[in-house]
């Protein structure tokens, strides 16, 4: 975790910039954390057919959980603009599939809410989202409005 003032999404400023992107550079730690995280995912979202990760930041986390649980995955890319015609879904989601959303960190929950909408548009079922860290900036509330329960390994305040 790096301290300092960083411009986050939505222009919100934060003193903490959580750098989970360096995690795969430490394979032993990456393995351990993703094992613990996979257990949480399996516990909170049992019986899912597919894991959906936020591309590309959470791609390593998603692939790790997919391999550890032996479940298929797909990635959803952030929508850059309303005029983008690229399909944000990388991989497939079959109609009726039960899915769980994954991301490394959530703040407002907007990324996960968009992911839920995209997966549902492809016919997938979304009831749960699991993140490593919840920054508690409104994600739980926003997601519950979308009918998605948010689970996290840790809350940001537990780390401070």
């Amino acid at each position: 975790m790096k301290e300092g003032e960083f411009l986050l999404h939505m222009g919100r400023k934060s003193e903490y910039y959580i750098d989970l992107r360096t995690l795969p550079s430490y394979p032993e730690d990456f393995d351990e954390i993703t094992t613990i995280f996979s257990r949480l995912v399996a516990e909170r979202a049992s019986d899912v057919d597919r894991i959906i990760g936020a591309a590309h930041g959470a791609a390593p986390l998603t692939v790790a959980v997919s391999m550890k649980l032996g479940k298929p995955y797909a990635l959803v890319r952030k929508i850059e603009s309303e005029n983008s015609f690229r399909d944000p879904l990388h991989g497939e989601v079959k109609p009726g599939e039960r899915t769980v959303l994954l991301d490394d960190v959530t703040s407002s929950g907007i990324t996960l809410a968009c992911m839920a909408a995209i997966v549902r548009a492809h016919g997938g079922i979304v009831d749960d989202a699991v993140v490593l860290i919840d920054r508690e900036l409104g994600a739980e509330k926003l997601l519950s409005a979308f009918g998605v329960r948010l689970h996290s390994l840790v809350l940001l305040r537990e780390l401070l």
């Binding site: 960083f6 992107r21 990456f30």
Partner: peptide, 23 residues
């Protein structure tokens, strides 16, 4: 990621486009 996990090799990745926020 799959290779890194299985062989315990450290991984870095090249960004698609330099992001506007963060470092």
């Amino acid at each position: 990621t799959a290779v890194s996990l299985k062989a315990k090799l450290p991984l870095i990745y090249v960004r698609e486009t330099p992001k506007l926020h963060g470092h």
